[in-house]
Structures are given as structure tokens and as C-alpha cells.
């Protein structure tokens, strides 16, 4: 397969177009993880630690949103950001920022749902001890987040994996503009349809490598957590 050879050549030669695409993908997905984490972890912790009417429904919806189809998220964010949409005046459509927004919407529920589970399990285990030690509300939250840190980072990695691999949302709100909003996944889709297999395969390999590294990191964290904290 000559395609393989040229894909490898592209990778090894550090092809600038390819590197730019990889870079943008990482920036978008990592930003989405940061924002998704800033929203998802506190939200998940809040749901875990409070009782309010409709809480069960919130949990069911949160869990359901984990399986949200990226294209639907893309469509919703598109409608929000399009010129005639409620946030149209921000002029974000077809920019990397729009892609970050879409991926944040996509993965915040994943992070929130996993964080909720983590914090709630830990809380049911810790609550009597922390009450007996007279630990205040802020101290409790800090303790639960710190002691659940390995699981919480795993949740962030799960969010990153989903963001990095999805194509629907970034395609719709980013527009796959060459050199501006083209990510690994949208480039692969485009190049494959054009028949330019070396670039598509090269990007595919990078994407697989990233997914492998993320999963290895999640695995390593879990092991480290067990070793350090039991």
C-alpha cells in the first residue's frame, strides 16, 4: 500500500499542514475538557451532595446526555450561534471558539455524570466520618474531590477521548475551513472523500495514537490511585 508509506513520510517529515491540523484538534478538545470540567465537576458534585425535587430526573437526563449524538449537539450550537440565532451577534460560527463551545456542550454531561457517581459513592462512604470529625461543607467538598481525584481525572480523560474522536459537532459549527477550523476528524472525512488517502491515514494514525495514550493514562492513573490511596 503506497498510501501507508506516504502517510508515514508525512508524519515523520513533520508536514506543516498535518501538524497544524493536529495542533488545532488538541487545542479545541483540551479547551473543551477544561471548560467541560469546570462546569461538569462542580455540577456533578452539587447533584451528588444535595437533595431537591426532580433530582432523580436530573440524574437520568445527565446519564442520557452521555450518549448525545455529536451531530445533534452541533446542530443545536449551530442554531444558537448562527447569524439569526440568539447568540448570533457574537460572530462565533465557523471559528475554533464555536467548536470549543460545541465540544464543551458534548462532554460536560459526561464529566458531570461520572463526577456525580464518583462523589456520591464516596459521600455515602464518608458522610458519617466527616460529620463525626465536624468537617464543614467546603471541607467536605474538597475532601471528596481530592479523594476522588483519580476517578475524576479518568472522567476528564473520557471526555477528552470523546471530544477528540467526534466529527459531527466540529464539522457543523466549525465548517472544516482549511487552515482555520479543520481538525483531524473532519480532515480525515474530507480527504477520504477526495481520495487523498496518505493525509487521511496519517491523521488516522495520530488519532489512534492519541486515543491509545489517553487510555493508557487512564489505566496508569487508576493503578497509581490504587497503589497510593487504596
Amino acid at each position: 500500500m503506497p498510501g501507508d508509506v506516504s502517510a508515514l513520510q508525512l508524519l515523520l517529515s513533520g508536514d506543516p499542514a498535518l501538524l497544524a491540523i493536529v495542533r488545532l484538534s488538541l487545542i479545541v478538545s483540551l479547551s473543551a475538557v477544561v471548560f467541560g470540567g469546570l462546569i461538569g465537576v462542580p455540577f456533578g458534585a452539587a447533584v451528588a451532595l444535595t437533595r431537591f425535587p426532580g433530582r432523580e430526573a436530573v440524574i437520568v437526563i445527565l446519564n442520557a446526555l452521555m450518549g448525545l449524538p455529536p451531530v445533534v449537539v452541533g446542530l443545536a450550537v449551530y442554531l444558537l450561534l448562527s447569524r439569526s440565532g440568539p447568540l448570533g451577534s457574537w460572530g462565533l460560527l465557523f471559528t475554533p471558539q464555536a467548536m470549543i463551545v460545541a465540544q464543551t456542550v458534548l462532554i460536560a454531561p459526561i464529566i458531570a455524570a461520572l463526577a456525580r457517581q464518583t462523589v456520591e459513592d464516596l459521600w455515602s462512604e464518608y458522610r458519617d466520618e466527616l460529620a463525626a470529625m465536624d468537617v464543614g461543607p467546603l471541607g467536605r467538598i474538597a475532601t471528596l474531590i481530592w479523594d476522588g481525584r483519580f476517578s475524576l481525572v479518568t472522567a476528564l480523560l473520557a471526555g477528552f477521548g470523546r471530544a477528540a474522536a467526534e466529527v459531527g459537532a466540529v464539522l457543523i459549527v466549525g465548517g472544516n475551513i482549511d487552515g482555520f477550523t479543520r481538525t483531524m476528524t473532519t480532515a480525515i472525512a474530507l480527504e477520504t472523500s477526495k481520495g487523498d488517502l496518505p493525509l487521511a491515514i496519517g491523521l488516522g494514525l495520530v488519532l489512534i495514537a492519541i486515543v491509545v495514550v489517553v487510555n493508557a493514562a487512564a489505566w496508569g492513573l487508576r493503578r497509581a490511585g490504587e497503589r497510593l490511596a487504596g
Partner: peptide
Amino acid sequence: SPTHRAIVFQRPAMLRRSAAGNIRYALAAA
């Protein structure tokens, strides 16, 4: 407010820390 009393539950929950870390946590809380 349980400032002057402490309890050991029948099945005490172990914080995900070292043995010393658990004691240090309680000291901090105190």
C-alpha cells in the same frame, strides 16, 4: 457540635490516604 467527642463506627470508613494521612486529616479537622 461534636468538638469534644469522637466516635469509632463499627465499620469505619478509611479515607483514601495512607494510615498517617488519615490521622493527619483528623488532626487538621480538629
